[in-house]
Amino acid sequence: MQKTVLITGSSGFVGRFIQQQWSNIVLWPRSVDLTNRSLVQSKVQELLKEHRFTAVLHLAAQSNPRLSFTKVVETWNTNVMGTLHLTGALEECGWDGRFLFTSTGEVYGEKKGEIDESTEVQPLSPYVSSKCAAEQVVRDFDFRTAAEAMVVRSFNHSGPGQRNIYFLPSMASQIAGLPPSGGTIEVGNLNVHKNFLHVEDVVRAYAALLESGRGGETYNLGARQSRSLNDILQVMAEMSGKDVEYRRHPERFREESPEPVSVCTDKLERDTGWKREKSLESLLGDLLRYWNRQVTAK
Rank of each mutant, 00 (worst) to 15 (best):
G88P: 09
G88N: 02
L90C: 12
L90H: 07
E92R: 12
E92T: 14
G94W: 09
G97L: 12
F101Q: 10
F101P: 05
T102F: 04
S103Y: 02
S103M: 08
T104C: 00
T104H: 01
G105D: 01
E106R: 10
K112Y: 07
G113C: 09
D116F: 13
D116Y: 06
T119M: 10
T119K: 00
V121N: 05
P123D: 14
S125Y: 11
P126R: 00
Y127W: 04
V128C: 10
V128S: 03
S130E: 04
K131R: 02
C132H: 02
A133L: 15
A134M: 06
A134P: 09
E135I: 15
E135Y: 14
R139M: 14
D140K: 14
D140P: 15
F141S: 04
F141K: 04
F143Y: 12
R144E: 09
T145K: 08
E148A: 07
M150L: 03
M150W: 01
V151Y: 04
V151Q: 00
V151S: 01
N156K: 06
H157T: 13
H157K: 07
G159Q: 11
G161E: 13
N164W: 14
Y166C: 12
L168I: 10
S170R: 12
M171V: 05
G177M: 13
G177F: 14
G177P: 07
P180Y: 13
P180V: 11
S181T: 15
S181K: 08
G182I: 12
G188T: 11
G188S: 12
G188L: 06
N189F: 02
V192R: 15
V192A: 12
H193W: 04
H193N: 06
H198Y: 08
V199M: 08
D201S: 07
R204D: 09
A207Y: 10
A208G: 06
E211N: 10
R214G: 02
R214K: 13
G215L: 10
